[in-house]
């Protein structure tokens, strides 16, 4: 178990290293110079003023020291508390960390329920569909349709149909414009109403993939030797299905870690469509306003978040699959 988690930990540490390094390298070695762009956008006529502005910004963003020093400083700023992710240009002079922290609750409020519920419901649905012809014939095509649907399209359709045609739910922002964030019934009610459609859009697309995966896995398990043997011994089908389901869960837990990136992507575009003030919308604003510090801060935050989630899933896996605990086989690293 220690070896299993140690190996995983090494991979995560290396991943973090690679991500931070890419993040640090891109603005420094890519063609184009964000600082010059910013200075030229200011439209200063006087070259001396422009030079002073350039120097000011280079000092502000720590670009006036040798390159290796910048790299070390970058790491140092990440491990200081609170992490110093630089200053946003898009909403200058607010620190990137504040902006990210402000957007994070909205993203988590969408992502966590969507991931967990779609996983749970999808697994149940898939297990039910396996070996029940009538159910399989409806669940499977619908699941394939859902999983083939791009997140942004479903989000757009939900805005148009649920928001505009039916008018059941608001389809933009996280709460009504005339409210201020506070702990009151009207605000929480508005928050909940605005949450429904973006949540549905994330939930539905992810649901299909889980249902398909679970269906295939349960069928595979039901055909395996231990199921046949149990059947030959006269075990009730319910018991066999239960064993098959529990064995089929293992790849689905691993799959949860693999799917994180996909759901995250879905979350970004969903937030863009619904104008939902989470990390995805922040990311779009960073892109459109070429705010590289904000962009990097978000990326770093997302990478660390994904790594933490992966680690949590690994621990759950160790807890669920006894083989990893005794160091036999189980999940490949």
């Amino acid at each position: 178990m220690g070896r299993y988690l140690g190996r995983k930990g090494l991979i995560y540490a290396l991943t973090l290293f690679v991500a931070v390094t890419i993040n640090w390298m891109l603005p420094r070695f890519m063609p184009g110079d964000p600082i010059s762009d910013m200075v030229s956008r200011a439209g200063l006529r006087d070259p001396e003023a422009a030079a002073r502005m350039q120097a000011y910004y280079e000092n502000l963003f720590g670009l006036d020291v040798p390159i290796w020093q910048q790299y070390l400083n970058y790491w140092g700023s990440l491990f200081s508390w609170p992490p110093d992710l630089g200053i946003s240009m898009w909403s200058f002079p607010r620190p990137v960390g504040d902006l990210v922290m402000g957007a994070l609750p909205y993203t988590l409020a969408l992502l966590i329920p969507a991931i967990l519920l779609s996983w749970y419901v999808g697994n149940k649905l898939g297990a039910l569909a396996a070996r029940r012809k009538a159910l399989d014939n409806t669940v499977l095509p619908v699941s394939y349709l859902l999983t083939a649907t791009p997140y942004m399209w479903l989000a757009i359709l939900l805005v148009w149909f649920g928001g505009m045609q039916l008018g059941w739910f608001p389809s933009s922002r996280a709460y009504s414009g005339n409210l201020v964030p506070e702990f009151s019934m009207s605000f929480i009610g508005s928050l909940a109403l605005h949450w429904v459609l973006p949540f549905l859009s994330l939930f539905l697309v992810a649901l299909g993939g889980w249902a398909i995966g679970m269906r295939n896995l349960v069928i595979y398990e039901l055909e395996s030797d231990y199921s046949n043997y149990l059947g030959a011994l006269g075990a009730p089908p319910r018991l066999i299905r239960k064993y098959a389901f529990r064995n089929a869960m293992l790849p689905q837990i691993t799959g949860l870690a693999l799917q994180l990136g996909v759901v995250l992507t879905g979350n970004i575009v969903t937030e863009v469509v619904f104008n939902y003030p989470g990390l995805g919308l922040l990311l779009l604003n960073a892109i459109t306003s070429t705010d590289f510090f904000l962009l990097q801060g978000i990326v770093l935050f997302v990478v660390i978040g994904v790594l933490i989630c992966n680690f949590v899933i690994d621990i759950v896996y160790v807890w669920v699959d006894p083989r990893t605990r005794t160091g036999l086989q189980g999940a490949s690293a």
């Binding site: 991979i11 890419i22 184009g32 990136g261 990311l283 070429t290 590289f292 962009l295 990478v303």
Partner: peptide, 17 residues
């Protein structure tokens, strides 16, 4: 390593630059 990386977000940064 690439598998754990949230690839899409990395690609966003790369394409943005």
């Amino acid at each position: 390593i690439v598998l754990v990386l949230p690839v899409f977000v990395v690609v966003i940064v790369v394409t943005a630059y």
